[in-house]
Design a protein around this nucleic acid. Structure first.
Lengths: 197, 197
DNA sequence: CGGTATGTTGACGAAGGTCAAGTAGGGTGG
DNA sequence: CCACCCTACTTGACCTTCGTCAACATACCG
């Protein structure tokens, strides 16, 4: 599924939606990864030139823009929630900017994997010392678009981490994180870290 | 001036404030450029690990966080303005991500210059066909932090644009844009473009 | 069972980073 | 007013990282 963001807004219920930017010559950069609970679209802003791509099958709760803005005016508490979410996304975008501008390919791929691994570790901290199986919602090419890398470089970094027994790729989209602390150390971040490892 | 963002929020009145992220080994990425009218700090979010740097002398209108949040609850319209601003910054951040992830050094520098040149052109469209003098608020090193480049690469791109008679550096922070349309064409964007050229 | 998507690996080259030397302004103290 | 110094900027030589192109492997789907 692929197309212009239409004149509606909504929240993601299940699945993963990606927003991408594309240059006239076809270069692509992913600029947002929306997971369940995240909000898609800007109230009060008609045009934003993104493409929305559903990476897995997605269920959304959508509203057309105009009625939603009326609702928003009636229930100001709603706006506060949106402001918080927007601030969160802004923070995430800025971690991502550090990644894009300054991290090496190896650090980028490690950071990418940590996003998904950390999600599981947060649910069950004991996983930190075990193997963590991940089902990535992206192909190598999409991971490249996420990280600002070519798909070949992404593939090579996966292989390198496999050689170092940090990670073990399994089929197309599966990976098991063999050594979570080691992977975390490869991200180039200090311990606390933001959204992006 | 340099330091942690303290427990306050506020709007920039004059000057330019930059937010940067720094990695343990010292690599730096600028993640926001706040100009007059922009808001600094997230209501409802205590910690964000940025450094705020005033690139020029700055006047701000600041509030401590707690009283401001009370104010915000009393006047919901205020929140709407903040949401709009936050959405705008998010859009800007995403244009910036495309730049960081996918543009060449030459395109990055062109895009950087266009941000400032466009500001002037918007005020006076006739400038588009004239020479535009800019007083950049940044050193080469800071431009590098903005664009995810080394300062040497920034310098080389300035020289290259000078050789091509697109731009004419003047002293430390001065530049005159000799050929605005040519510079625009170097950004790699299609005509409309977002915040970042 | 064959075909298309995706992933891996190798060889090579180009873009940009690093290191190093030298230059140019701008401000300060003599 | 001039000499000096400190900071920013420029330029060159070299090297690393990553992108590109290409061949091949694997997996998924009809």
């Amino acid at each position: 599924m692929d197309g212009e963001v239409p004149d509606f807004v909504g929240t993601v219920l299940t699945g993963t939606v990606s927003l991408t930017k594309i240059m006239p010559d076809g270069r692509i950069q992913m600029v947002a990864m929306l997971r369940p609970g995240n909000f898609l679209g800007h109230p009060y802003r008609a045009k934003s030139s993104y493409n929305a791509v559903a990476s897995t099958s997605v269920v959304m709760c959508g509203f057309r823009r105009k009625p939603f803005e009326r609702l928003l005016r009636k229930i100001p508490e709603l706006g506060q929630g949106l402001l918080e979410q927007s601030s969160n996304e802004l923070d995430a975008a800025r971690d991502w900017m550090l990644l894009l501008g300054r991290k090496t390919a190896r650090e980028k791929v490690a950071s990418f994997l940590i996003i998904f691994a950390r999600e599981k570790v947060t649910q069950d901290p004991s996983l930190m010392k075990k193997q963590i199986y991940l089902d990535l919602p992206y192909t190598r090419a999409e991971i490249g678009d996420f990280l600002g890398l070519s798909l070949e470089t992404v593939s090579r970094q996966f292989s390198a981490f496999k050689d170092d027994s940090v990670v073990d790729p399994d089929g197309k989209r599966g990976v098991t994180v063999v050594d979570y602390p080691a992977l975390l150390a490869e991200t180039g971040n200090d311990a606390d870290g933001g959204w992006l490892a």
